[in-house]
């Protein structure tokens, strides 16, 4: 359903700082896949997601969503297909808009924005129900500016915003990395529930190899802008972190200690 073919992305081309962030990534994501992406710092994980979302245009290569070529579409034009949760909780929500205004903005993803009022009774009712499931008491704070909330609360709202409208794929870029461990666990559990309930197709970057094996149905590792391995199905069953390190070693000829990945 999502097909990325031979993506190349180069930053600062032709300068001393030239940096090949993606060097030929080809990836086929089926409907309902939940792909976990791992890789060291600078491996190109965020670049891959940015290319999918339209924040970065590849030098060469193609991106197809449901057989529609979206390679030259800009971010806002791809928004009907791709929903997104950022690593930085501040990035995914608008601090000086209220909770309900943020949610109303997400209600408009993929829709034509008209001169109708952005908020109405039905929407508020829907927002209250959606926020209620978080059990954070946010359903009673619709009119508070979202900047007053903690990073974890904002990330939880970002997830809810992502699923207010249908999409083809949800892209999550280390969306728990900026949170304390307890909150991170809560957000991760919420992610799992939401993806499962809505039968979403997901691409999630994580810095934890454990997460990458526990969650989803497919694990993919990037290294220096290339996919070094991509495991799913039976091959992935019972795989341990040590097996991932072994896989990496075999594919790249490099040793990699657990820490360098876990910390990055």
């Amino acid at each position: 359903m999502i097909r990325m073919t031979d993506l190349h992305v180069t930053f600062n081309r032709g300068t001393a700082m030239e940096n090949k962030a993606l060097r030929g990534v080809t990836l086929d994501i089926k409907k309902g896949d939940f792909v976990c992406v791992i890789g060291g710092n600078g491996a190109g994980k965020s670049t891959l997601l940015n290319a999918l979302c339209g924040d970065i245009f590849p030098d060469t290569g193609k991106i197809l969503i449901d057989n529609k070529d979206v390679t030259s579409l800009s971010t806002w034009q791809r928004a009907p297909y791709v929903a997104r949760v950022f690593q930085d909780p501040m990035a995914g929500t608008c601090a000086n808009l209220t909770i309900e205004e943020n949610l109303a903005l997400a209600m408009g993803r993929g829709m034509k924005r008209t001169l109708r009022m952005a908020l109405n009774k039905d929407y508020r009712e829907k927002f209250r129900t959606q926020l209620g499931r978080l059990k954070l008491g946010l359903e009673n704070r619709l009119k508070d500016p979202i900047g007053m909330l903690s990073g974890g609360q904002r990330q939880a709202i970002s997830l809810i915003m992502a699923v207010l409208q249908p999409m083809k794929i949800i892209a999550l870029d280390e969306h728990t990395a900026a949170l304390d461990p307890k909150t991170a666990a809560f957000i991760l559990e919420l992610t799992r529930e939401i993806v499962e309930e809505n039968h979403l197709t997901a691409l999630m970057v994580t810095h934890s190899m454990h997460q990458a094996l526990e969650l989803g149905n497919r694990t993919l590792m990037l290294h220096k802008g290339r996919v070094v391995f991509d495991v799913q199905g039976e091959k992935r069953q019972g795989l341990k972190v040590s097996d991932l390190l072994e896989l990496f070693h075999k594919a790249s000829g490099l040793e990699l200690d657990d820490d360098s990945l876990l910390l990055s």
């Binding site: 971010t75 806002w76 808009l97 109303a104 952005a118």
Partner: peptide
């Protein structure tokens, strides 16, 4: 207060988020 106006306010407040929401 309209859908369009909210998109405009988001553009000024957080342009990255506004784009990601299809504005």
């Amino acid at each position: 207060s309209s859908e369009k106006g909210l998109g405009m306010r988001a553009t000024g407040a957080n342009i990255r988020m506004a784009k990601a929401q299809g504005v």
